[in-house]
Each structure stands twice: as structure tokens, then as C-alpha cells.
Design a protein around this nucleic acid. Structure first.
Length: 872
RNA sequence: GGGCGGCUAGCUCAGCUGGUUAGAGCAUCUGCUUUACACGCAGGGGGUCGGGGGUUCGAAUCCCUCGCCGCCCACCA
């Protein structure tokens, strides 16, 4: 690329396209594996979910990462900043099903010759999990391209050689290795127990994936008879359809209303099932009627009570949320399976027949209708309420609790240790640490790892089969590490042949896949190579920074901390940097379902990537920000200003031998004074950035650039730069302009990488060497300006600005042009100060066209300025 | 119910390890063709820093309390 002629107008499209292409060729962001760890800054990049939609939040939070990375790079750090794509999970499954009209059937075998057909008509074609995953690869490749394109346009400084996708062999191997290691350490285990179950996705989920939704509901007041008497108690329930699963009735031990019934049996309405009435302090007399029916899998408390009192298990829902077949039998018949003792089996069975096979919601309607028809069941009219119900975050119907065999990772045992780990990490902003801690302390279940889905990393185990073909869950067959990744539905365990699959005495593969977080929690190991590349892992882990948003503290951050702890007793990174959300102007979260999403690319088209990044840079860590297009306009103005200012400044020193423009040439009072102002800016902007506060750094730099530099200094120095002779004053001004702009450009570079690179190459690099880049140039330091002497008075710059302001104000009040001549300005100051200021006051004269200057020497604390305008 | 965060000019936000008349940008008003930039420049108006207590010579900044708003979690008979 040859040096570009100075364009007359700032056209972001042109500038950005050229530099994007140039960086693509020169790869200035490559990671150097040979440099030491203490010179390296390691980022645990968030892999975006590629099958999800692109939105403003992406550009927002990814810009934040890049600011910090670019700063660290300019500080001389070797940057490890990989990029990954998260393709696991439900969004991809759904996309592939629609795209190719297929469905995954875990028990169909792999067909190596299978060819998918886009937009195929007819019924979905059943294919094996392996074939399905191959299709996911095809689809996600296309989705990745969309993100890759955006990241490049946005100017993300990734090392594109360190790219990964969470579904590729490497990631599946890392994920399966992690599982096997934790299995060996007894940190994962399988158990059959009630789990949170989504009836649409037909899978178990983890506590971290729960969300509450406020939904309309109602209390139904049902009369339970007291066995052997005419009395009854009334219970209030929101789930009358679970009545067949009722196994006990509880009251508070001190509740005078019901004390007399404890020890007796209640009889459920409609089904006439006798159940014990027991006293339990957890029964709240204030809630409902103070009487609670315990259903085997009603809610978490029910599950606890069933366990505490060894109550019988009555499963009434299947995995789709339908009412299971149940038979009510006479007392004396054995109660087993779904046979429950009833005082009146005939009525009970007739009533149950009405709801058999129905989905819960419909069953509820029917059972309420039935109760209303029958005398003595309903005690009083239902009471409508709104209450929060647990949902899977991606689900559309309420979760149920169902008994199922699942794999779990132990986390309850490690709660305290995990809190300690969290405290070893610096959270930015700091208060985000309490979100983590809150979450850890509130955990009440181990991490459910297995999902009854298809697209994901397979759980790498098989089970032996018994004589009768029953699955022997105790007989877990594991692969060797060097066999990974495996799919137990296609691969065969050692010591078996493929003919022995699913036959008595043979083996069967675990049909489940991991929770996507089981893999995502390993992004550090995926990037370093983890156990597959111990040398490199040791060098890069723990990492320096994890950037992410706050809603996934309980998932991504938490699980990553869990894995690092369980595997290595380590923290995964030293810093977590949290980005907020983009809210729409009404302060609602922008999301696709809300229809308030602004798509990213048109904004880049309109304003340029630098402006979009500027917009992101204005938001502090962790702070949710209302989307405000005004900010883009401000960014655009800043870019234009920078473009114009740079062009001008460059013209002021162009053609002068750079050897004459070093810091030692800065001899003039005003010039030394602005350098004195620049020093604290460099210090503060640097400190802010070191503390991950990019927004503060940007704000300080912007203020200095616009106010101190452009509006005042450039004007003050202008007359001297137009002198014909290469006088000391002119050289001093030219050197100052050159060096201050050079520092400011670098301080803007992390935010506006395209424009700053452009300007950098106009003036600050060797023409021949196009490998030079502002992005690998050193971040400004005080040492650069060490050769510049202090001004003779510490407050010169401020006082000069006061004088300027006074003159400007006087002119503005008379509606005069700034170039209107001023008859006289009198600055009253102490003699020492007046003497010190004289050279700078000369600059003011030149700038504001003052005909006569007087410095009056008096003993005043602060200088005063009197302005005498020309009056006709 | 618990936790966290926020409430500062019309709007979006800084400031909050206590210290001169509380800041910026946008918006608004008055001017200015000033040879880098009208995508500019200068100047003005506009806030009892959510309410109420307290500590202090001094509080937007510290403490207490109340009120809204948001997020997270728990309970959900």
C-alpha cells in the first residue's frame, strides 16, 4: 500500500476500507508464542452464539474488549486474543431442522454418504446424531461468516489464527476430557432424582437456566374429607390437576384450627385417596388456608417433604407434560407402579379418565370443571392471582419436576470454596462480585450436566447391559483419552464389538449431550489447548481478562470458575470486565422478541466503525445504556474534528526537518505550559485504562483534545506557526503541535483505530515502511516529554485562558467578530507573574488582534484582566 | 422477602477516597464568513445534586431513614 494523498474531506468508508484491507495483509495483531508470560496479556474471549441474531449489544460489548486489548498492546504487551464461535445448543438445532428438514434420531446410525438437501419437502428425514452434527457444522459455518464480517468491520483486533468453534473436534475433546477427569475425581456423578424438566424440549435443565415469569393463576379451594368423620379441611391450591399425586396433607404444629386432625387421614376429593395429615413447621398458617397438600413432584418443597417423610412416589406426568395412566385400586391390593389405593376406585378411575393423557393446563381446566359439578368438593369460588412460575429461559411452558437419571457436577459441596475463588478475582465494576457471590450462596442443586438433546457434545460413556438387556448404570464404560472425541452412539467401547450394541450382555451408549455451558465453561482451556497442550496452557492460564455481560455471571462466569477450581484449584482469570446492556430509549432491554432491535451494520454504514466504537466507549463498565443515536453524531463530529485538526497541524510542521522538532525545541512559555497540562492527562488516562476504565480515559482525552488543544492552544500557537523565519518561537510551536497531536492520536487509537491509523501514516511513519502501525506504537508516557522544561509559571496555561476568555467575552457581548481589533488589554498581576506571562500574552495578542498590551504590576492575588474594545 | 445498582440542568451522562460560585455533550437562546473545521467558533440562560434527618468549620460526595426505577435471587399452598 502506498501512501495515500491527504483527502480533502473525512470519508470514514474510504479510510476504514483501506486500513481493514491493509491489516488483513500485515496481521499486526498476531500473538507471539515466544514471548514471556509477564509480557503477555491473555483474554478469554466470549464466543458469540452464531445462530443467534446480531444486535447492537454485540458491537457494544465487543468494542469494550477491544479498547482494553489495544491499550495493553500499545503498552508493549504480547496479546493473546483468540476468537471463537459458540455453535452448540438449541438455536443451532432449530436452524438446522428448518434449513434441511431433518430431525435427529439418536438411534439412527451414521450414514457417511448422507447428502442433505436444502428446502427438502415432505416429512422431516430422521438422521443420526453424527449426521445431524455434520449439518450443524455446515449451517454454523455460514453463520460464523456473518459474525466474522462484522468483527472485521468493527475493527476487532483478534489474532484470526487463533480461531475456534465450540462444536469442532478440539472443543469436543476438551469438553469430554474435562468430564472424564471430573468423573475420576468423583466430582461428577449420576443420580436418579426429580429434576427441572422442560416438557417442550423434553430435557432436564440446570438451576442457572431458570427464569421466573409472572403469569395469571388462581387458588382453587378444595375440601378434603377427614377419614371416618363428616368433617373436612379446605386446602387452597394453584395446581388442582396434581391432586392425583397428593401423598400427604400438612399443617403447622401450632395451628389451633387443625391440631385435632394431625395423625388422622385426609381423603382427597374426586379420587378418594386417604393420605396422612401431618404437622410440619414449614407449613405456613398464613398461606392459603394453612393446609397444604403435598404432591410428589409439585415443587421443590414437595420434593423435600416427600424425602423427609419417606412418602410414596406418585408420578402423574410424562416427559411431555401429559397425565400418565393411573389405576386406583381397593385397599388390600398392592400399591405399586401407578396403582394407588382409593376408598372408591370406581369413581376415582372414572374421574381420572377425563384427564388421562391431557396436558397439565387442559387437565387443570377439566378437573376444576369436574369439581364444580360435584357437590361438596369446591368450598368457595376460586381466587384469581398473579404469581411467578418457573420457566426454562428458552421455554414457553412452565417447568415441571420429573424424576430422571442425569449426570451432575458437584457444586453444593464447594460453595464456600467457590465464594473464596470469586474474591480472588477483580471484578469491574467491583459491585458485580456480589452478583456472583449471591448466586453461589443461593445455589440449592448440583449442576445438572446432561441434556436430552442432540446437538452438543456427547456424554462420552457407555453402560453395560444386563442379561435381560437392562441398562446397568453402575457399569460405566469410559473411553481412553486418546480416543476422544467420541460419540458413544457410533463408537464402540473397548472390549466390545459393534454387534454387541443394545443387545443383552452388550453395551449401550449414553444418548445425552452436555449442557452447552459444560463446554463454554472451558473457553480458557479450549483456547490454550488445556490438557492437550500442557505447556501452552501452563503459560497462558490463569488468564488476565474475561470480558462478558452481567446476565451470564451465574452461568458463564460461574461455571468457568467451577471448572478451573475443580480441575486445577485455580482461578481462571484475574479480571472480569462486565459490559452493560443496550436498552432502548424507554429503558427496556433490546431484544428480538420485543421488536426493538437496531441492527448493527447500517449504523456502521452511516457513521463508520470508529463512531460506533466511540459510542461504545462512552459507556462505563457494567452500566446499562439507553440507545441514543445522538451519541453517534457526537462521535462523527469528533472524528471530523480530528481529521481537520490533524490536517491543519500537520501543515504547520510539514517541511520542517523532524530533527528540529524534538521535545528540546519546546522553549516558548505557552508551549511549555500546554505540555504541563498534557502530563496529568497522560497519567490519568493511563491509570484509568490500567483499571479497565476505558470510558474515563476516552473522556479525559476527548476533553483535552477539543478544549485545551483545538480551541485554545492551536489558536494561540497559530500566529507563530505562520512566521516566515524558522524562528525559535515557530519551531517551538511546530514541535509542540507535532508532539501533542502525536500523543493524542495514540490515546484515541484504541477507540478509533481506523482514523488514528490514517493520520498516523500522514505524518508519523516512514513512508517506505508500511508495516508500521499506530496500534503497535508505544502508549504515550511522561518520559517522552521529559526533555520539555516546565513553564516559568505553573499556572500559565490557566491564566492565559482566563485572558483569552475575557477578551472573547468582551467581543461576544458587543456582537463583534473574533478578529475585530481590540484597542487595549490590561493584565494586572504581580511583577514576577507579569514577566513570566509576557510571551504568552503576546500569543493572545496575535490570536485576538489586540493593538496594545499592558501588564500592570501590582500585588494582587490573582491576575485581573481589563479589556478596552475599539469604540467608534 | 433478601441482595446489588441507580435517582445530578429539558435529554444522555460525568463528578461521589468530603473543600473555592456543581460539570460535559445534546437541545435552547445571542452572536461570529475566524485562511483546519459552519460536522465550526465565541458567549448566554438553565440544577435548593429523589425526600427527610445526622456527622462536620464545610456534604452531590460519609452515616441513618423513607420513596420511586432497574437488575439478580428466593418464595410461590
Amino acid at each position: 500500500m502506498s501512501k495515500h494523498p491527504l483527502p480533502s474531506n473525512y470519508a470514514p468508508e474510504d479510510v476504514e476500507t483501506r486500513w481493514r484491507a491493509h491489516w488483513q495483509k500485515t496481521n499486526p495483531y498476531a500473538y507471539d508464542p515466544n514471548r514471556d508470560r509477564d509480557e503477555t496479556f491473555v483474554v478469554d474471549t466470549p464466543p458469540p452464539t452464531v445462530s443467534g441474531s446480531l444486535h447492537m449489544g454485540h458491537m457494544f460489548s465487543y468494542s469494550h474488549q477491544d479498547f482494553i486489548v489495544r491499550f495493553q498492546r500499545m503498552r508493549g504487551k504480547n496479546i493473546f486474543f483468540p476468537i471463537g464461535w459458540d455453535d452448540n445448543g438449541l438455536p443451532t438445532e432449530r436452524r438446522v431442522q428448518n434449513l434441511f428438514n431433518v430431525k435427529c434420531e439418536p438411534h439412527v446410525h451414521y450414514d457417511p454418504n448422507f447428502k442433505a438437501e436444502r428446502g427438502r419437502k415432505g416429512d422431516p428425514q430422521p438422521i443420526s446424531r453424527k449426521n445431524f452434527i455434520e449439518l450443524c457444522d455446515v449451517a454454523t459455518k455460514e453463520d460464523e461468516e456473518v459474525f466474522r464480517h462484522l468483527w472485521k468491520r468493527l475493527g476487532m483486533s483478534y489474532d484470526w489464527d487463533q480461531e475456534y468453534a465450540t462444536v469442532n473436534d478440539h472443543c469436543r475433546t476438551i469438553s469430554q476430557l474435562s468430564f472424564l477427569e471430573l468423573l475420576e475425581k468423583n466430582e461428577v456423578y449420576q443420580a436418579e432424582r426429580p429434576v427441572l424438566w422442560d416438557v417442550d424440549f423434553r430435557t432436564a435443565i440446570a438451576q442457572a437456566e431458570l427464569v421466573d415469569k409472572e403469569v395469571p393463576s388462581a387458588y382453587h379451594f378444595l375440601r378434603f374429607g377427614i377419614e371416618g368423620s363428616d368433617e373436612h379441611v379446605v386446602i387452597a391450591t394453584t395446581r388442582p390437576e396434581l391432586l392425583p399425586a397428593c401423598v400427604a396433607v400438612l399443617v403447622h404444629p401450632d395451628d389451633e384450627r387443625y391440631k385435632q386432625y394431625v395423625g388422622k387421614n385426609a381423603v382427597t376429593p374426586l379420587f378418594q385417596v386417604p393420605v396422612p395429615i401431618m404437622a410440619d413447621p414449614k407449613a405456613d398458617p398464613e398461606k392459603g388456608t394453612g393446609v397444604v397438600m403435598v404432591c410428589t413432584f409439585g415443587d421443590q418443597t414437595d420434593v423435600e417433604w416427600v424425602k423427609t417423610y419417606s412418602l410414596p412416589t406418585r408420578q402423574v406426568l410424562d416427559r411431555d407434560g401429559h397425565m400418565l395412566p393411573i389405576k386406583f385400586v381397593q385397599s388390600g391390593d398392592t400399591e405399586a407402579g401407578n396403582r394407588f389405593v382409593s376408598l372408591n376406585p370406581a369413581d376415582a378411575n372414572r374421574n381420572y379418565a377425563q384427564i388421562l393423557g391431557k396436558y397439565t393446563k387442559q387437565a387443570q381446566k377439566l378437573i376444576v370443571a369436574l369439581a364444580n359439578e360435584m357437590a361438596g368438593v369446591i368450598d368457595r369460588p376460586k381466587q384469581d392471582i398473579m404469581h411467578a412460575v418457573k420457566y426454562y429461559e428458552k421455554g414457553e411452558r412452565p417447568l415441571e419436576l420429573l424424576p430422571a437419571r442425569q449426570w451432575f457436577t458437584r457444586i453444593l459441596d464447594h460453595k464456600d470454596a467457590l465464594v473464596v475463588q470469586g474474591r480472588k478475582i477483580a471484578w469491574h465494576p467491583a459491585h458485580m462480585a456480589s452478583r456472583y457471590e449471591n448466586w453461589v450462596l443461593g445455589l440449592n442443586q448440583d449442576w445438572c450436566l446432561s441434556r436430552q438433546r442432540f446437538f452438543g457434545v456427547p456424554i462420552p460413556v457407555w453402560y453395560g447391559l444386563g442379561e435381560n438387556g437392562e441398562v446397568l448404570h453402575d457399569k460405566v464404560l469410559v473411553p481412553r483419552a486418546d480416543q476422544l472425541p467420541i460419540d458413544p452412539l457410533d463408537d464402540v467401547p473397548e472390549g466390545f464389538t459393534k454387534e454387541q450394541r443394545d443387545v443383552p450382555g452388550g453395551f449401550t451408549g449414553d444418548p445425552d449431550v452436555f449442557d452447552t455451558w459444560a463446554t463454554s465453561s472451558l473457553t480458557p482451556q479450549i483456547a490454550t489447548g488445556g490438557p492437550l497442550n500442557p505447556e501452552r496452557h501452563k503459560k497462558l492460564f490463569p488468564m488476565d481478562m474475561r470480558p462478558q455481560s452481567h446476565e451470564i455471571i451465574r452461568t458463564w462466569a460461574f461455571y468457568t470458575i467451577v471448572k478451573a477450581y475443580l480441575h486445577e484449584n485455580q482461578i481462571p482469570w484475574k479480571n472480569v470486565v462486565i459490559s452493560g446492556w443496550i436498552l432502548d430509549p424507554d429503558r427496556k432491554k433490546m431484544s428480538k422478541s420485543q421488536g426493538n432491535v437496531v441492527t448493527p451494520e447500517p449504523l456502521i454504514d452511516q457513521f463508520g466503525a470508529d463512531c460506533v466504537r466511540y459510542w461504545a466507549g462512552r459507556a462505563r463498565t457494567g452500566v446499562d445504556t439507553a440507545f441514543d443515536e445522538q451519541v453517534f453524531k457526537v462521535g462523527k463530529r469528533l472524528a471530523t474534528k480530528m481529521f481537520n485538526a490533524a490536517k491543519f497541524v500537520l501543515g504547520r510542521f510539514e517541511g520542517i526537518d523532524p530533527a528540529l522538532l524534538g521535545p528540546e525545541r519546546i522553549t516558548h512559555e505557552t508551549d511549555r505550559a500546554i505540555i504541563r497540562e498534557l502530563r496529568p492527562l497522560i497519567e490519568r488516562a493511563t491509570t484509568a485504562f490500567e483499571q479497565f476504565d476505558y470510558a474515563q480515559s476516552l473522556q479525559l482525552t476527548e476533553e483535552f483534545f477539543w478544549g485545551t488543544f483545538c480551541d485554545n492552544y492551536v489558536e494561540l500557537s497559530k500566529p507563530r506557526t505562520y512566521e516566515e523565519e524558522l524562528s525559535e518561537g515557530r519551531l517551538s510551536a511546530a514541535a509542540t503541535l507535532r508532539l501533542v497531536l502525536r500523543a493524542l492520536l495514540r490515546m484515541f487509537a484504541p477507540f478509533m483505530p481506523f482514523l488514528t491509523e490514517e493520520i498516523w501514516h500522514w505524518a508519523y511513519t516512514n513512508d517506505a515502511d508500511m508495516n508500521e502501525t499506530i496500534h503497535r506504537s508505544p502508549w504515550p508516557t511522561l518520559e517522552e516529554f521529559a526533555a520539555v522544561k516546565e513553564p516559568s509559571h505553573a499556572e500559565t496555561y490557566q491564566i492565559v485562558c482566563t485572558v483569552v476568555e475575557a477578551v472573547r467575552k468582551a467581543k461576544a457581548e458587543k456582537n463583534l467578530s473574533m478578529k475585530a481589533p481590540v484597542k487595549k488589554v490590561v493584565v494586572t498581576a504581580t511583577s514576577k507573574l507579569a514577566a513570566a506571562l509576557t510571551p504568552s500574552i503576546e500569543d493572545v495578542n496575535g490570536m485576538l488582534h489586540i493593538q496594545e498590551l499592558q501588564t500592570k504590576q501590582e500585588k494582587v492575588e490573582t491576575p485581573t484582566v481589563d479589556v478596552f474594545l475599539v469604540t467608534d
